[in-house]
Design a protein around this nucleic acid. Structure first.
Length: 565
RNA sequence: CGGGGUGUAGCUCAGCUUGGCAGAGCGCUUGGUUUGGGACCAAGAGGCCGGCGGUUCGAGUCCGCCCACCCCGACCA
């Protein structure tokens, strides 16, 4: 491609509403253009990088024995009601009516359709296992699109679905996809971290996410540098510090005027936060839940939601709390009735806790389980954080932000049962297919790649996903010798199968070099009147500072070598 | 949905306090001079000042409503 023919302009300054690095650089490099919140056009350069990633994804999926197909994005609402997800997805689901007033959704994902498809196409265990995938646009009415291409309302996703006859089969398919994902990220030159992930309330067991660490990431990841345990904070287990066991002392009321926070309470009574129990109130599908947790810990709402099998979980409002006769800031489970009570298992780690007295301006000392209170449910609902003990080796874990670029998931029979995707096994018994699903956000991966690979001048593409492999800066292109030398290099490279961008514009050298750095192709060649007489061409790697002069006659070899670096 | 911020040329932003001809830099067009890290000279084009309403002789500027975009939060009382 000749730069003079390229659509899309580089910008000296980033647009003011671009906040994340990837959004700024992709916009400045003329690779993306925002249309509206969470809606972006991919311009030719950006689209080329996108297609490189897409190509790698496709090759690895095919290599794993998966079949590519394409399903409709527009779907009858009916099938979403059948699966129960019309409600589960809630407002994130784009809905519309057709001219006959039938309700349709613009699909955020394709479990329903693929399951129905398999129901029609698969009758026998002989038809299984099967892994099917597509690369297609998804639509989600996100509560808050953000971070440029990281969270958008319309995005292209590779989604795959596996169907097996039994759990062992699912395990095999799951492993296959896991390996394919590792291959994909590795080939893209992106060090993705595989972490244990939450599988959601809808069922299923194992789930792993693939994360690219980046400050702008939306997810918190806990990982152990000692043993390699890694998990999304939503899922992460950890070792809860055991407190010294003391003899049980008797309950005693203490006046705590205006002391409503754990920190305030600990200060006021001069005790560690670990000696208190905090009360938090949630509304789970409209029902009030009273949650107790040791004062130094915080509630992990995902764990809580899963424990309660709730579809809608939020903090209770002040009104709801009041109505239940609870004094916020001075609440505890002691003496409380008529409310579902749940406690984190951290309350088992100590004794003689300070808790609320259930009346204003007072707390109780020496509260003990089960003598003074007995929650309906005790389980792990605490949030792990930096320094929390690794559940495998107890070493303190590190915490980092990450961008979720892939997610693999054992679904089980949730969809196949609801939508009737059954097959006859070798004994003639009808059984639901065991499913898994596997997603990669391709556009998000593009953004994450830029988040990870850039410097102050611009993008530094991994060679495998760069829009062009070679960027030729032709200085003084109007000089006929330069024209000839640059065109010659351009043609020879193209002839040898390289993707090449030739900067043939009437721009000054500084502009060309800066644009080359901004766009970030891995190898830069410079053709100029200076080097032509010696029959030399200059070569530079985007991620190295120095350049080298090479012979024009053998420059293809050098380009190959530089690309492999 | 709650809180905060911003809307003026393709981009970055002044101007608004104190109402009185619509501005700068970059980019763009034309001509000329330049040519190894965002060149120079000259001449130009480009605006519903986010929208609607109000106040006023007069509104980019003051008031009200709306819209769009960005950020934070959807969380521990």
């Amino acid at each position: 491609m000749r730069f003079s023919q390229l659509f899309g302009k580089t910008l000296r300054e980033p647009p003011s509403d671009a906040d994340t690095i990837s959004h700024q650089l992709l916009t400045r490099a003329g690779m993306v253009q925002q249309l509206s919140t969470g809606l972006y056009s991919l311009l030719p350069l950006g689209w080329r990088a996108f297609r490189k990633i897409e190509g790698i994804v496709r090759e690895e999926m095919d290599a794993a024995g998966s079949n590519e197909l394409l399903m409709p994005a527009l779907q009858p609402l009916e099938i979403w009601e059948e699966s129960g997800r019309a409600q589960a997805f809630g407002a994130a689901l784009y809905r519309l009516r057709d001219r006959r007033d039938r309700e349709l959704v613009i699909a955020p994902t394709h479990e329903e359709v693929i399951t129905l498809l398999v129901r029609q196409q698969v009758q026998s265990y002989r038809d299984l296992p099967q892994i099917l995938y597509q690369i297609q646009t998804k639509f989600r009415d996100e509560p808050r699109p953000r971070g440029g291409l990281v969270r958008v309302r319309e995005f292209i996703m590779k989604d795959a679905y596996s169907f097996d006859v039994d759990e062992d089969g699912l395990e095999t398919s799951y492993r296959k996809m896991m390996q394919a994902y590792k291959n994909i990220f590795s080939r893209c030159g992106l060090p993705a971290l595989m972490v244990e992930a939450d599988s959601g309330a809808i069922g299923g067991k194992d789930s792993h996410e693939f994360m690219l660490l980046a400050e702008s990431g939306e997810d918190d990841i806990l990982h152990c540098l000692n043993c390699g345990y890694a998990a999304n904070a939503e899922k992460a287990r950890f070792v809860k510090e055991k407190l010294p066991q003391e003899g049980l002392m008797s309950l005693e009321e203490v006046s705590t005027p205006g002391i409503k926070t754990i920190q305030g309470l600990a200060n006021f009574l001069n005790i560690p936060e670990t000696k208190t129990i905090k009360a938090v109130f949630y509304s789970a599908d409209g029902k009030l839940v009273f949650v107790s947790i040791r004062g130094d810990l915080e509630v992990n709402e995902v764990k809580l939601k899963n424990t309660l099998k709730a579809t809608d979980l939020r903090l209770a409002t002040d009104e709801e709390v009041k109505e239940a006769g609870i004094h916020a800031g001075f609440a505890s489970q002691i003496g409380l009735t008529g409310v579902l009570t749940l406690a984190d298992d951290s309350i088992l780690t100590g004794s003689n806790f300070v808790v609320g007295a259930n009346k204003p301006d007072a707390h109780l000392r020496n509260a003990n389980y089960p003598r003074d209170f007995e929650p309906d449910i005790i389980t792990d609902i605490a949030l792990a954080r930096q320094g929390s003990g690794c559940p495998h080796c107890s070493e303190p874990m590190a915490s980092d932000r990450g961008i979720e670029v892939g997610h693999i998931f054992k679904l089980g029979v949730v969809f196949s049962e609801k939508l009737g995707a059954n097959f006859l096994d070798e004994n003639g018994v009808s059984r639901p297919a065991i499913m898994g699903c596997y997603g990669i956000g391709v556009g998000r991966l593009l953004a994450a790649a830029v988040e990870q690979n850039h410097d102050e001048k611009g993008i530094i593409w991994p060679a495998a996903i760069a829009p062009y492999q070679v960027h030729i800066c032709a200085l003084n292109y109007d000089n006929s010798e330069v024209t000839q030398a640059a065109d010659d290099a351009y043609e020879r490279l193209k002839g040898a199968g390289f993707d090449v961008l030739l900067d043939d514009r009437a721009e000054s050298p500084g502009v060309k070099f800066n644009d080359a750095d901004l766009i970030g192709c891995p190898v830069r060649l410079t053709v100029s009147p200076r080097n032509i007489p010696q029959n030399k061409i200059e070569i530079k790697s985007r991620n190295e500072k120095t350049s080298a002069l090479i012979d024009v006659d053998t420059f293809l070899e050098s380009v190959r070598e530089f690309l492999a670096r």
